[in-house]
């Protein structure tokens, strides 16, 4: 008996978003079927991996994930170059954690200069994430937008409390925006609507759904992202047809399983492998749920996930 593959028909497609400029530019999105369903749709752009760079020496990182960066950890530009040239990063994600007023309170000017130096040095696009401090991120990301005019950065996290100011700067200096909401379909949609009403072109918006890690809320991210995608593709909801970025490296490496030494949990096995698996499995879940950009940390997990992306898309 002949068997016809039961196919779904989709009425919508994810928008293509371009990050970076000139020959550094990378396109994400563009697919018109649910993830892994290449047999019933087009996937013109594979998901991309952005590797993290911090603007300060990280504190409390597991040994395993400090080691690959030991020689560059105090020099973010070199760190970014190493990620691109040695570890094959397709995008760099600069994490401006030191701008947090509760820690070093690095000035917007200094942060913006650093972003500019990195953007100029590397051959791939740049994502710039503020510290997550709602007020300070306004000052920092506005300055970054201005100083890096024309670089077409992806700026985030832009949240409901600060989207006006950062959105206006992104429009003025032509950057993309990572719109971050708590893990929830309707809130993501609401912020996209606000940004569009402000005048941000829809093909300059990327959804940041707030990402959990394996064992720490990944099931919420997984299902909300699947529902985001069903809304965009099956229900043709134009306000949800943006690609998705998952800022997940920090979540995976924060997990207890990635950090707790063997002498404190004698049954947990090798700490390095634990950390790596925590990052790769978190990444795998998010990829399968529909991520277009994964922000990752360790070069070894990046390797694994790159191979999987090449096999799977």
């Amino acid at each position: 008996m002949a068997f016809d593959i039961p196919k779904e028909t989709y009425s919508g497609a994810i928008r293509e978003v371009i990050i970076g400029e000139g020959d550094k530019a990378v396109t994400i999105g563009g697919q018109n079927a649910m993830t892994l369903c290449g047999f019933e749709g087009e996937f013109p752009n594979r998901p991309k991996i952005a590797m993290e760079v911090y603007d300060e020496r990280p504190e409390n990182w597991a040994e395993a994930v400090m080691e690959p960066f030991a020689d560059v950890i105090d020099d973010p530009v070199k760190w970014a170059l190493k990620n691109v040239n040695e570890y094959g990063a397709q995008i760099i994600c600069l994490q401006l954690s030191s701008t947090d007023p509760n820690t070093k309170d690095t000035s917007p000017d200094a942060a913006a200069q650093l972003a500019k130096s990195i953007a100029q040095a590397i051959s791939v696009p740049l994502v710039v994430y503020g510290s997550g401090n709602v007020e300070k991120d306004v000052a920092v990301l506005k300055k970054v937008a201005e100083v890096c005019e024309g670089k077409n950065l992806l700026l985030g996290p832009v949240v409901e409390e600060n989207y006006r100011q950062i959105g206006a700067a992104a429009i003025a200096f032509k950057h993309c925006i990572a719109a971050q909401t708590p893990i929830d379909v309707n809130m993501a949609k609401q912020l996209n609507i606000l940004l569009e009403n402000l005048g941000v072109p829809p093909d300059k918006i990327v959804i940041d759904p707030s990402t959990g890690a394996l064992g720490y809320g990944i099931e919420y991210s997984y299902s909300v992202m699947e529902r985001d995608r069903l809304a965009a593709l099956s229900q043709n909801d134009a306000k949800m047809q943006m690609p998705i970025i998952c800022d997940m490296g920090k979540e995976a490496w924060k997990a207890r399983e990635s950090k707790i030494p063997l002498d404190e949990e004698p049954t947990y096995g090798d700490i390095t492998k634990r950390g790596l698996l925590w990052e790769t499995v978190t990444a795998m879940d998010l990829l399968m749920a529909g991520a277009d950009i994964l922000v990752m940390r360790h070069p070894k997990s990046v390797d694994v996930i790159k191979k999987i992306i090449n096999d799977m898309f």
Binding site: L214, G215, E219, Y268, G269, K273
Partner: peptide, 20 residues
């Protein structure tokens, strides 16, 4: 199925199979 693999796989399984 060394400890890290069991932890990663079974925690993933638990997350995916929990009541949404």
């Amino acid at each position: 199925i060394d400890p890290p693999s069991v932890l990663a796989l079974t925690v993933n399984r638990m997350n995916i199979y929990t009541d949404p």
